[in-house]
């Protein structure tokens, strides 16, 4: 039987602050299959970001085992984790994290420069252009972040996350800095990526609207999985296509 894309077994993470041990993740076990779109919710301080950092290979759990795409991550070295982040993971951050004074095209191409297998410049450029077209920014390729709206910036970030064709995309509060209309715009984009490219998406969020657009909701509380429920997702594409209600009123 093939392994699921993500398999966590009794993941624990304890921070040491001075002499005090702060257990943040206290034994998390879960599986996420290829092609799923999952929301990770829970009250503030429940350990969502910490779990996300572990899943994203930015952090190492104190104990437990983590399989990602048939690779045991906890045994990898720092450079090994960098390679996994480059090839298998895309990140979308709450604050976009675009490079200042750099064009959208260059932003999207940037992760490819850390990819070991040689990708020609032309190939890199073609991929980046295709992705920017896909996220609807074909007219904005030479724009720098200061010339883009928040939603457009986040779409550049999504294109950047996908440039290496990773099997999984992590988004920590991707809509935290956006208004309700652009939130739907970004959600529609994520749903499309999930449906059309088959990329597994895991979204950390406080926002019930965002959580409602996924098929599965994992709730954390005090570093443990509180609930894990399947649901019928709302479709952002429909809502986003229509004019936003407040605008219609005005």
């Amino acid at each position: 039987m093939p392994r699921p894309l993500i398999q966590l077994e009794d993941i624990r993470r304890t921070f040491h602050v001075g002499d005090i041990d702060v257990p943040v993740l206290r034994g998390i076990t879960l599986c996420i299959e290829r092609g799923e779109m999952v929301a990770l919710t829970g009250p503030s301080g429940s350990g969502k970001t910490t779990l996300m950092n572990t899943l994203g290979c930015l952090d190492r759990p104190t104990s437990g085992s983590y399989w990602l795409d048939d690779e045991e991550i906890t045994r990898l070295t720092k450079d090994g984790r960098a390679r996994v982040r480059n090839r298998k993971i895309g990140f979308v951050f709450q604050s976009f994290n675009l490079l200042p004074r750099t064009t959208a095209l260059e932003q999207v191409m940037m992760p490819l420069s850390y990819t070991a297998s040689g990708i020609t410049d032309r190939e890199a450029r073609r991929r980046a252009e295709d992705l920017l077209v896909m996220v609807g920014l074909s007219e904005r390729m030479d724009h720098t972040p200061s010339q883009l709206s928040g939603g457009q910036q986040q779409r550049v970030a999504i294109a950047r996350a996908l440039v290496n064709r990773p099997p999984v995309l992590f988004a920590d509060e991707p809509t935290g800095n956006l208004d309700s209309r652009t939130t739907l715009e970004v959600l529609a984009m994520l749903q499309r990526v999930n449906a059309e490219e088959g990329i597994t998406i895991i979204v950390v969020t406080h926002d019930p609207v965002v959580a409602g657009h996924t098929r599965r909701n994992i709730r954390l509380r005090d570093g443990l999985v509180e609930s894990d429920t399947a649901q019928t997702p709302l479709l952002a594409g429909v809502a986003a296509a229509a004019p936003a209600p407040e605008e219609a009123a005005a």
Binding site: R87, F91, L99, Y114, T115, N164
Partner: peptide, 16 residues
């Protein structure tokens, strides 16, 4: 610093 963090997140090694 944030740029460095981002580059690391997308796969830059310490050496890079």
């Amino acid at each position: 610093t944030r740029e460095i963090g981002l580059r690391m997140a997308v796969g830059a090694r310490a050496r890079d």
